[in-house]
Write a protein that binds this DNA or RNA. Sequence first.
DNA 1: ATATAATAGCTAATACGATTAGCTTTTGAG
DNA 2: CTCAAAAGCTAATCGTATTAGCTATTATAT
Lengths: 191, 191
Amino acid sequence: MRTGLDKEKIILRAAELADKKGSSDITMKELADELGIKPPSLYKHFSGGLDELSRELMLCGWRMLDAEITKAVIGKAKDDAVTALCYAYRDFVLKHKGLYEAMQWYDMFQSKEHMKACEGAVDVMYRSLSSYELTNEQKIHTVRLVRAFLQGFSTIEAHTAHDKPVPLDDSFDFALRTILRGIADMQKRSQ
Amino acid sequence: MRTGLDKEKIILRAAELADKKGSSDITMKELADELGIKPPSLYKHFSGGLDELSRELMLCGWRMLDAEITKAVIGKAKDDAVTALCYAYRDFVLKHKGLYEAMQWYDMFQSKEHMKACEGAVDVMYRSLSSYELTNEQKIHTVRLVRAFLQGFSTIEAHTAHDKPVPLDDSFDFALRTILRGIADMQKRSQ
DNA sequence: ATATAATAGCTAATACGATTAGCTTTTGAG
DNA sequence: CTCAAAAGCTAATCGTATTAGCTATTATAT
């Protein structure tokens, strides 16, 4: 009982470590070294071993992302809200490459838990669309489109060398405008 | 020299195994078992071990995807081509969940090789846009948008339970139409 | 055909990370 | 001040990757 560690602190440390490595593949040994303890000691905090740690990392990541995008859309509506949310999401992924990878720790056995975890973040997306005049079904489609785009663009960007002839910023902006235009178009037609 | 195996066959078998597991995390042991040989024997074909196997799997996957989408767009232009390409891409991912994961074996050390590998598939996307009247820069933005959307939508779909209230097919269709509308809009304005 | 070199498999041995078992020290509650 | 839980440690076990060295098969060159 010397180091003053607890589950929370360890997870945050693990997240940092993942981001430093740029990958979610962190080992008990690496994490223990990072914390100045021996690998077996980690089992006092995570009796479920690496699996439990991964799950916690995933949950922690979604909570953080949720917080970021929530903060970003406060006081904004419609296009402003969607735009802010998208930029915040992308920034998060670029800043947390390793953690974001851990957040993809989909299904297998824990599918429900994972879904609950992203739920918060996805819910923010839904709320951001609430100021538009869309049917529920349209909102669902739109959230899926936005989610897919963000997931795809950010991962590709995070894993690709940043020396493109055409800046990625411009492409992101372009894509975002395309999507917003699509939403506007939808509203026009449903009137 | 009994089993008549060669690099090519082993890779294809590894791809099947990955898809069967729904994950790219296949071990030397699993693969050896699958092939009816002992793990050390694999090193006769892959002296670089698991790393080399992963790389080959990645390359193999991109070649396969390239072939699929190329086949899909033959004889088509504009919206028809893009639509066919998108559906083919999505089908591929859903059919090859494990292999597709292996294809994400980004950067680290081999970044250039990986880029070359996707290059073929990305090139098909560019060609599919050739029938539109777009500037080079616009094409680049568009390819990035399409790529991001496909990557994101497919991975999310591949990893999520298929029991949604609103069918994913409809959302895919909706998103695709939104993107095509965006392209049309762009052309209108640049005239 | 036959000797020979490369091939492709095998077993045994090594290394390393995950995990478990059991011991010990610190710390918080009473 | 005592005691139980908490949190760390070392030693031991297990499983997978990988290497080393052996052997049988196959292909090739004489």
